[in-house]
Design a protein around this nucleic acid. Structure first.
Lengths: 207, 207, 207, 207
DNA sequence: CATGAATGAGAGTTCATTCAT
DNA sequence: AATGAATGAACTCTCATTCAT
């Protein structure tokens, strides 16, 4: 198994354990065991537990920013663009049960940024902030453009609209994650997540 | 100071500390000190640290359910009703900086429900689940009623619509909380939270 | 038991354990147990294991510098003064079996100064360096004065003479410590330590 | 590279690292890297980390005992003999910066003897004790002889005199080592070490 | 012979929780 | 009722040592 493969194994394992138990209750021993390696080896790949959490968050942000850059190249009008961005969210988070776990980890991970003292993690922290800002900026620019072109509603500022969109998609996906873990019915299915965003764009954002 | 006053002091203090540091990094010593009492005394009022977290969450849920019951008595049509519910959210969370902290604690608190083993907390856990279900049911019934009466869009199931509404309001308020703590500008103000929900109801939910 | 008493208990216990096992093999659990308290409580009094070691070293240096200041006030000629300083060493280290252990800890402690990274211990480190410099300066000034007055041999520089004196007393006392622990005969007794220093001053240092 | 060459490389590397960091903070990985080999290979040549430390100490003791045997053959009177022994110390420790490191390692190494449990190292431990006793005996015999012949002062027992001599030379050399590493001036140079011992013999030991 | 990835025991350390005062 | 000193379980993390390659 190559170094990169093992790093991914750890991240995958941690994503699962963090999602199921929460960062607090997740132990390095369990993450390692779940990844099929020893506790000590984990520390060859990551500085510490927080580093793993941040790496998952950073990985997601980098991935989605990359996907956005790709997709937005070929998109021209704001409606098409905002669709593209949220389809990327769906593609990355709704792919399978494993990616579904990400929503919980992302939710839990970002607040931890505030508590980072470790010198070695400061760079990672800054990177996350940078990528997060990039993601936000991408969305806000599209919304601003749509408002300027007169295709988007102008009642609200782009930042509020973006929060509504992100909050909606996050909560809808979180419900699916919860349903997957608790085996409880939540009254909707994977397909409805996409439909919700579509409707949100069509009715809430468009003029 | 009466027993109830002291209990509230602890809950207030914990809300602040949990919001600022996160449940993991918050220590009982700090919560107690911040509440103006000794560490030991905290345990006369709450079983343990998790109990405090759950009490905050339960308190909020009970409060909002109570407010909903009150307000919904005098409301007749679904539009008015859904407005009422979300105005309650605003009233409870946007009152001042202190209540703003609740959004972070609620966000962090609910996932902890899964990890409760402590026999003494099981009842509290069930209570939270009960109140949460009640809140969800209240919203879903209004939406169902609106759809039946033909005033609400029927494309999506009530549960998805509710998730969109809740996710939106939560994220918009979370932004305000973040801005309050980090002193960073997020591009919108308190007033915009209400406006966002209003617009969401008018454009997204109504037919 | 008062706070200061307990702090002393820990330092005493650690001095014993460090002397017997060495810093590396000494565990916090053993130090605490030997002091009659729990592991955790140790951390209310000291930052960490290294802090304890440094505190012992610093305590000794402060003590001997204090004693020197006292004794040197009433001394006038360099011979008398250098006697005073080394009698202080004897008084502090040869008092009983407990103080004998100090010689081993001092020996082991000073080299650790180089490896201190911990921000919280930097101040203690600087204090140790300061007190150590003070002790050295005290001795060197006496020797310089003796040489100037023509009562001390001038072949060697004060710093070398001081190293010879310190090395001698340290090794002689170390021998006693070793004998105490191993129960082996080393060919001399406590009284000989003083005699050795006396002779060293009379024959080696005096003109 | 031959087996013996590699063994020496490891010992040299370890001497440096032990001197700089201390046994506790020195890692096998660094010792190996510094020796230009892999971590694992180190274990083909030495049982474990402690074995390396003991090997350095034993090597020094064997070397100095050998040199003493050589030099003492051609020496006849006690003064000449004691000179010879301490010139051997100088020759072995003051040769260059590398050998200077030995003084720190010897200082740190001997106390570790007490903590050896490992069956495989017991023999090495006994060897060190044997060689150490031999060295001590060599010095003590010379001093005894000098006292009997009436050329050495009889106030102190041979063992105390030997401790004074060893402590002095050790401390003087330690100062040079410290100065070499910290780049701080200590007020004397290599040449003064020899002068100090000479003077010590002439004034302190001789009648 | 040589590697260095992998192991896992065991240490330091934290802090929720208890309880003598 | 109130304190905060004291406990000790359980965590993270390190690194000497092993072993498949």
């Amino acid at each position: 198994m190559s170094t990169d493969t093992k790093k991914l194994k750890i991240l995958d394992s941690a994503t699962q354990v963090f999602a199921e138990k929460g960062f607090l209750y997740a132990t390095m021993a369990e993450i390692a065991k779940n990844a099929g390696i020893s506790t000590g080896l984990t520390y060859s790949y990551f500085k510490n537990k927080l580093d793993i959490l941040l790496s998952i968050v950073l990985g997601f942000l980098q991935h989605i920013n990359l996907k956005n850059t790709e997709k937005l190249e070929s998109a021209s009008d704001p409606v098409e663009k905002i669709y593209a961005v949220f389809h990327n969210f769906e593609d990355l988070l709704l792919k399978d049960e494993k990616t579904l776990c990400l929503i919980k980890v992302l939710n839990e991970g970002l607040p931890h940024l505030v508590m980072i003292n470790d010198q070695d993690l400061l760079e990672k922290r800054l990177n996350i902030i940078k990528e997060n800002r990039k993601l936000i900026k991408t969305m806000d620019l599209i919304i601003t453009e749509g408002q300027k072109k007169g295709v988007f509603d102008k009642t609200l500022s782009p930042s509020v609209i973006r929060q509504v969109l992100c909050g909606s998609i996050e909560r809808v996906i979180y419900g699916l994650f919860f349903s997957y873990f608790s085996k409880e019915d939540i009254g909707y299915k994977k397909e409805d997540a996409g439909k919700a965003i579509e409707l949100l764009i069509n009715k809430f954002i468009k003029k």
